[in-house]
């Protein structure tokens, strides 16, 4: 591109920008604390959407799905070459930081009150807070692993200066019969359909302790909801009118049986595996709490 064309483009960019405010991000260096007994072994390394795969290979694709905008990481070493690595992923919104956190949240681990929530397993501590997803890894820390990782995480959490509140949509799931720590957020291709986006899910148990998933999809507006429902009916070959009031049972060729209900711009439903008795009052409770 010639310098002349570049200058014209810059003028256009600046003109547009005069009416907007650029996003301010904190100074990266200020997010990485000192760790007693360890020294920083390199400069802060940064990755962007175009090169994240160089760091985490195929795993990068899931982060990109959650609107990943940048990773800054710092490694620390002690005198015996044992290491602690702090990775701070910027996912732009708390929904996304929770989303990727939920995808990596182990089923068996210790849950801690750091950030909004943290998970700890030997060698790994992850938490989310505001737009950030933070992963701290220890290598060869032995008996002090938990102590080092939790104290480091608390320091990072303080430096982030972000709210420690979960996504608001999670509050819509009733507590009764809900399985702890199984909520997820899927930003696109929910249930394997490209027209279902921005779905929050939670796991519930029926009276026989069998589990099923409840989901809430928030569409931009009623027209978008109707379009999604129309596409779904076509894809899953469903004849009934899902836009009518009430809870509808549908037979989806891929998912099996589903319960679906709509209200305003929301789709509420439950994956309904065989032999599970879903308490429909939970779905009704969700629907009645939606505006």
């Amino acid at each position: 591109m010639s310098i002349k064309r570049f200058s014209v483009m810059m003028f256009a960019v600046i003109s547009i920008a005069l009416t907007c405010t650029a996003e301010k991000t904190p100074d990266v260096k200020s997010l990485f604390p000192d760790i007693e007994g360890f020294t920083r072994s390199n400069d802060i390394v940064s990755y962007r959407p175009d090169n994240l795969f160089e760091y985490i290979n195929g795993a990068a694709e899931l982060y990109l799905m959650y609107d990943f905008s940048g990773l800054n990481l710092q490694q620390y070493k002690d005198k015996d070459e044992n290491t602690i690595t702090i990775e701070i992923y910027d996912q732009k919104t708390v929904n996304n930081s929770f989303g990727i956190y939920s995808q990596e949240r182990p089923y068996e681990c210790e849950y801690l009150d750091i950030g909004v929530q943290a998970t700890y397993m030997e060698g790994y501590l992850n938490f989310y807070q505001g737009r950030y997803y933070v992963k701290i890894a220890g290598y060869n820390l032995g008996a002090k692993d938990r102590e080092y990782l939790t104290s480091t995480a608390k320091k990072v959490s303080g430096l982030l200066r972000e709210e420690t509140t979960p996504p608001a949509m999670l509050m819509l799931f009733p507590e009764k019969a809900k399985v702890a720590n199984r909520e997820e957020y899927i930003p696109k291709d929910f249930l394997g359909y490209s027209f279902f986006e921005k779905a929050f899910t939670a796991e519930y148990q029926d009276t026989g302790a069998k589990s099923y998933k409840l989901f809430i999809i928030e569409t931009p507006d009623r027209a978008a909801l109707e379009k999604s429902i129309e596409e779904y009916k076509k894809a899953a070959n469903i004849k009934i009118d899902l836009l009518k009031d009430g809870i509808h049972e549908v037979d989806d060729q891929y998912q099996g049986k589903l319960l679906i209900s709509v209200k305003g711009k929301y789709i509420v439903g439950a994956l309904n595996p065989e032999n599970v008795k879903i308490d429909q009052s939970i779905i009704i409770q969700v629907i009645s709490s939606l505006k």
């Binding site: 985490i56 182990p106 089923y107």
Partner: peptide, 12 residues
């Protein structure tokens, strides 16, 4: 799959 995908959840 890989241990890195979903931090092991994909394997599970």
């Amino acid at each position: 799959t890989a241990a890195l995908y979903g931090q092991g959840k994909s394997e599970g």
